[in-house]
Structures are given as structure tokens and as C-alpha cells.
């Protein structure tokens, strides 16, 4: 076993999450109390609450990937997305959400990365639930201070001469990074291109997958 001497790690090498045996926090107790009251009063049913949780969990970065693939292949859509990201979402038939969307296009001279230092704002309608690291204090504080080091830790080494632009999602906008279209994908249809567009590439901590790594 590779982790014999690290029994706080799971077989896959990740730390176990400690059991949550402590008392409820104020807000946890409040959430349970309000939820139970609303169910008792017939405002919502327990099944509706469960369905909403299911709907949240079911969101994935697939819509974001479809957005990027169309951006790469449809110049009129690209123009619309850069001018008004929310309208571009609506045009694709995606839920726009309460916040407005800004699309940030990576180029050979400019790389964009998104962070929310104040909390964890994230375009959930397009990308699903944010990864845990996106919400960590380390990512939130370091990405505005030493973004090149943070990107390097994700395996993204930006060459000198490429400007890195950090977007702090402080208010009413949500951001999707449009990564650079991988080489060797000329003539690919949007469905095939979308498979190269990872969640992390739309946050800006990674590039899209190379054409040779397209999942089957």
C-alpha cells in the first residue's frame, strides 16, 4: 500500500473529511427550523426541497463547454458573447440566471483567470457547482496577489510576454473564460470541440485539452 504510513489519507491519497459530530451552528439550526416550518405550513414540500438539491447537484460544466465551442465556431455568436454574455446564453437556450455574464477571451497575448475574493461568486448556470478549491481562502487571496504562481501550481505556466489578467468577481457580473482553441481542431464540429473544454479552462487556471486528448 502506498499510503501505509499516512492513515489520515484515503486510498486515493486524499485526506478524509472529519466527521461533523459537533453541535449545529446558529445558521444550520436556523436553516432546519425554517425549512421544517415551511414544510409544516405547506409552502414547500420536502420532496420539492430534495428536487431542488438534486437540480443543483446535477448542474455540470457542459453548458459552459457548449458556449465555448460555439464561440470558437460561430463568429456572429462570438461577437454577441463579447458584447452581451447573458444574451448569448439566452440565444443558446440556457438559463441566464440573475447575474449578468461577461465572456473573457484568451488570446496569444492575454490570459484571463477568475476569482471572487469576497466570497465565491461563480457562473453556476453554466459551470455547475464551484470546486472546493475555488472557495478556499488560499485561492481567493493568492490569485490576486501572485496569480502566476497559482496558475503554475495548476500546471499552467504562462510565457513572458503573455499578459495575465485577474478578474475579481466582486459584484453583479459573472465570468466565463473562453480558452484558446486547441491546435489541430480545424473543421471540428462544436459537439466534438466541447469535449476539450474543461471546467478549469473556463475558470482560467488551465488551458483547454489538446486535440490529442479528446475524450472518446
Amino acid at each position: 500500500m502506498p499510503h501505509d504510513h499516512h492513515d489520515h489519507l484515503s486510498p486515493s491519497g486524499h485526506p478524509y473529511r472529519p466527521d461533523q459530530d459537533g453541535p449545529l451552528t446558529y445558521w444550520q439550526a436556523m436553516e432546519i427550523a425554517i425549512r421544517e416550518l415551511m414544510v409544516e405550513k405547506g409552502i414547500v414540500t420536502a420532496a420539492q426541497v430534495r428536487e431542488q438539491i438534486d437540480a443543483m447537484d446535477a448542474r455540470s460544466p457542459a453548458q459552459g463547454a457548449a458556449f465555448v465551442a460555439r464561440f470558437w465556431t460561430d463568429p456572429a455568436f462570438r461577437d454577441l458573447a463579447l458584447r452581451d454574455g447573458s444574451n448569448a446564453c439566452a440565444e443558446m437556450g440556457f438559463e441566464v440566471g440573475p447575474m449578468r455574464l461577461i465572456a473573457l477571451e484568451n488570446t496569444s497575448r492575454l490570459h484571463n483567470v477568475v476569482v471572487c475574493t469576497l466570497c465565491s461568486c461563480y457562473p453556476r448556470n453554466l459551470l455547475g457547482l464551484p470546486p472546493d478549491w475555488y472557495k478556499s481562502r488560499a485561492y481567493r487571496s493568492r490569485t490576486v496577489r501572485e496569480p502566476r504562481k497559482v496558475l503554475a501550481e495548476f500546471g499552467t505556466i504562462l510565457p513572458e510576454g503573455v499578459e495575465l489578467r485577474v478578474h475579481d468577481s466582486t459584484a453583479d457580473m459573472r465570468y466565463i473564460v473562453v480558452p484558446r482553441r486547441p491546435d489541430g481542431t480545424d473543421g471540428w464540429q462544436p459537439d466534438r470541440l466541447a469535449k476539450l473544454v474543461t471546467r478549469d479552462s473556463m475558470i482560467g487556471v488551465a488551458e483547454a485539452l489538446p486535440a490529442t486528448e479528446a475524450p472518446a
Partner: peptide
């Protein structure tokens, strides 16, 4: 030479 953008009221 890098840049940062944020939304400010």
C-alpha cells in the same frame, strides 16, 4: 506588467 479588473460601484 499583469493586470487586475474588479467591479466597483
Amino acid at each position: 506588467a499583469d493586470t487586475l479588473e474588479a467591479e466597483i460601484y
